[in-house]
Computed example of a mutant assay.
Amino acid sequence: MTLNQRIDYLEAVEARISRRTYTNEPIAAEKIAFLKDRILAINSESGLTITWLEDGSKAFTAVKSYGMFKNVGSVMVMKGPKSTADLSERIGYYGELLVLEATALGLGTCWVAGTYDKDSDLFSLGPDEILVAVIVVGNVPTEETMKEKLIARTVRRKTLPLQDFYTAEGETPQWFVEGIKAVQKAPSAVNSQRVRFHYAKEGVSASAPGSWATDPIDMGIAKLHFSLAVGGRFAFGTQGRFEKD
C-alpha cells in the first residue's frame, strides 16, 4: 500500500503474523518516516515515550534471544513513565496499533517481552521510565522460513474456539461476535490467549488473570482488536468498559 492510502486495520489484523527472520534490505525511508510520525502522534495522545531505534541488533545476540531471531534491525522501544496508569496495557494497545500500521506497509513485526537484552545500553531510559517490551520491525522473506515454522510450532497451540474467549449474560449481538473474532487473531505471549471478554446489558468488559507480567500487555492488544472490529473505544484498566460508536 502507498502511504497516502487510509490504513485498513481489519485487513492488517487478518494479515499479521509474528516474524522472527528478517532480510538485510533496509526499510524504505518513507516507511520509517511514516512510523516515526505515528510514534510522535501516539506519544502525544497517550503520554507514552515510545522511540524508534534504527539498529537494535545488539540486544538480540544468540545468547539473549535463544537464537529465535535473525537479522534484527530496527525496533520500536515500548516504554513510558512509571506514573502512567495501566502502563503495560497502554503499551499493548498503542504498540499493536503500530504493529498493524507496519503490517499494512508490508513490513514484518514481532512483539518481544522477554527474549532480548533488556539491560542493553541501547535503551536509554529516563529516571522515571519503564521499558515494557520492544517490537521488532523490518523487511521479511515472502514466506516463513523453516526455522520460523519450527519456532512457531513450539510457541503456538491450536487457537481457542470463539466461545472460549468470552462469557455472556443473555444472547450476544452480532457486533460483539465480530469483535471477538478479531480478538481471536490477536497476538499474545506464547499464544496463551488469556484475555477474556464479558458481555452484559450494562456493557462489555475485559479481564486477564494478571499472574503473568505480559497479561496487561495482551489485554491492551486484545482491546484494540475488539475496538477496531466493532468501532468504539475501551477504557483502560480491569474495570474499563467499552463504549461503542
Score class of each variant (00 low, 15 high):
L131F: 06
A186N: 07
V137C: 02
E144P: 01
F165E: 02
V136N: 06
V137G: 03
V177K: 05
K149H: 09
K181P: 05
P187Q: 05
E171F: 01
V140F: 01
K185G: 08
S188T: 10
P209K: 06
V132Y: 00
T145H: 00
P209D: 08
I151N: 09
V132G: 00
V136Y: 00
V204F: 06
W175T: 15
V140Y: 00
P127L: 05
P187D: 04
Q163I: 08
F197C: 09
H198D: 14
D215C: 05
S188R: 01
N139A: 00
Y199E: 11
E129N: 06
G203D: 15
A213S: 13
D215M: 01
A168I: 04
I135G: 05
K201I: 15
T159E: 08
I180L: 12
P173T: 13
W212D: 14
R157H: 14
E148S: 09
E169H: 05
P161N: 09
A213T: 14
E144F: 03
S192C: 11
K147Q: 12
P141R: 02
A168N: 06
D164F: 08
E148D: 14
T159D: 08
P209I: 08
R153F: 08
G126A: 07
Q163H: 10
R156E: 14
E171D: 13
V136E: 04
A133M: 10
K158H: 11
A213P: 01
W212I: 10
G179N: 02
Q174W: 01
P161F: 04
V155C: 07
L131M: 10
Q193N: 11
A152N: 15
K158E: 14
V155W: 07
V177M: 11
V132F: 00
A206L: 07
L125E: 12
G170A: 09
K149Y: 05
E169N: 10
P141L: 02
F165I: 06
T167H: 04
R196K: 15
W175V: 15
E129P: 03
L131E: 07
Q163T: 12
P209Q: 08
A186R: 02
G210W: 04
M146R: 09
E143T: 10
T159K: 05
E148H: 04
F165H: 04
K185D: 05
K147N: 08
I151S: 04
I130R: 08
D215T: 03
Q174D: 15
Q174I: 11
P209E: 09
